[in-house]
Design a protein around this nucleic acid. Structure first.
Ligand SMILES: [Mn+2]
Ligand SMILES: [Mn+2]
Ligand SMILES: [Zn+2]
Ligand SMILES: [Zn+2]
Lengths: 176, 176
DNA sequence: TTGTTAGTGAAAACCATTTCCATTATAGGC
DNA sequence: GCCTATAATGGAAATGGTTTTCACTAACAA
């Protein structure tokens, strides 16, 4: 499965709600609360992955992450990265993105200090991706209405949307 | 490469413009003009593929098309289907879509009698896809403005956009 | 009709992602 | 702090959609 903007949310896991949610049970990560609250174990690999995502400019592929953490955590395998990204995506903590370059890419749904909602502008030639926030408010406004209308009309419980613009970046449209 | 809403257009091919464009050179297909005009040869396979796309409800995968035409054209291979879909997509005659089910899907950019622009509503559970045209006008209006603004600000030559909503269809949200 | 070469099919290669399974390490209960 | 159940892991193998290779075929301009 690949490339929808991060489907699904919430923790479907056991772990009776309302349990002690110490955000300090290991180290200091802001995500530990949510993570533990859903009954997931805190492992070195998961920590490293989340860490690399929050420290990068976003749009990392599984292999990008592997390369980033491998020097420091040589025994975190690619398989674990795929699995963790899947978990995080299901928890709604990261978005799974598809920019058409044949591999899934991921970005944090929101940083430690709140969301920074944006959409994407993708160069179809060199695959450069620009995060933009211009027009976001109007877009989000219209999307909300649309979601509502569509939800009612087609009996869909809409949880997510993807807006992406495709075209040629300056360099690529110049090089003819 | 996979899953962006049909990148690129136009014919980059030789074939000096302004050549005889008989729309009747073989059979009757409405697309022959555009096809031949770009210097592509008209083959049985291409004909069959275009035909199956125009006769179906859309969102066919390469293999779907293969299955559809195989009985009548048993010597059109899957490879040719992939190649043809790529050509058609580059010509802007079809859109390449990604609904997150791990394979590319295709639909005609416009039918024989003009476009029928729509966006998609995708069930993340059963992968059902609804074409909707509601709100399209407002969406397209806003998108046009956004495209313009972004094009200027980021020096992008925007050619295309993707809007998709994800959620659970009636059945899937019911089955808990 | 013929020659040039775009197009083709079958098989093999590709490669991102998933599955398998024996091993390890987290965390709750003591 | 120790023990235990089992969630999590990693390496290797499998998967599966798509692409590449290459010898062969057929479209079409002349
Ligand atoms: Mn982004
Ligand atoms: Mn459609
Ligand atoms: Zn570019
Ligand atoms: Zn469904």
């Amino acid at each position: 499965m690949q490339g929808n903007g991060g489907r699904g949310h919430g923790c479907q896991r056991g772990k009776s709600a309302g349990d002690t949610q110490r955000a300090d049970c290991r180290g200091q990560g802001w995500w530990h609360g949510k993570f533990r609250g859903c009954g997931y174990r805190l492992t070195t690999g998961r920590e490293a992955i989340l860490d690399s995502l929050s420290k990068s400019e976003g749009h990392l592929s599984a292999e990008d992450i592997y390369m980033k953490i491998h020097p420091k955590y040589p025994n975190v395998g690619l398989t674990t990265i795929y699995r963790t990204l899947d978990v995080l995506s299901n928890l709604g903590m990261i978005y799974k993105l598809d920019f058409g370059d044949g591999r899934a890419r991921y970005e944090l749904a929101e940083g430690p200090k709140g969301a920074h909602h944006h959409h994407h502008l993708v160069c179809t030639d060199c695959n450069k991706v620009v995060d933009y926030t211009d027009f976001i408010d109007e877009e989000v406004e219209l999307l909300r209405e649309t979601e509502k209308g569509l939800g009612v009309k087609y009996n869909f419980k809409i949880t997510n949307h993807v807006i992406q613009f495709y075209g040629l970046c300056e360099q690529c449209s110049g090089k003819k």
